[in-house]
Amino acid sequence: MIAIVNYGMGNLFSIYNALDRVGAGPKIIADPKDLAGADGIVVPGVGAFGSCMDQLSGFEGVLRKAFDDGVPMFGICIGMQVLFEESEESPGAQGLGWIEGKVVRLPDGVMIPQMGWNSLAIKRPVQMFEGISEGDMFYFVHSYYGLPKDRSVIAATTEHGVEVTAAVVKNNLFATQFHPEKSGAKGLKILENFVRSTRC
């Protein structure tokens, strides 16, 4: 079972439909204890860093356990940003901190939010990028981006005034700043790769 964590932020329709399309048979999970036994966990995200972390707090323990147990996990957009320790968007709010570093605002002078299709520079040829080529475009909507201390976790970047972290990978955890569920066939391909990783 692929679980979509429903922590009350925004609609999960798109991610549900996209996972369903690639054969995941997804389930939307609102109660943390129902996450036990999931083969894969998707953490979507809409809204601001601080309110996301507030809403997510009930899930923090089970998510950490799943991460430590090696359950494949996929964070999307704010679902990627909350993996970091903190964010300029919500000073004082603590992130999950699974990735060292902070989330910073896009530089002045570029269009904020970055909204639209941008191309990937692939830094690590991870399994999630099977069937994805350098320069393929994905759909981004965001004003902040993660800056990891250890740059080796960066799986891909994109360019929007600065080099922007577009995807990170750490053990069984993969996360994208872009929205694979809104990125056409290439986005579905990444989700399909994720679903496959839950079945080995």
């Binding site: 439909n17 996209a18 809104k182």
Partner: peptide, 8 residues
């Protein structure tokens, strides 16, 4: 539409 269309 959103069952089969994966763009905004």
């Amino acid at each position: 539409t959103s069952e089969s269309v994966f763009v905004p």
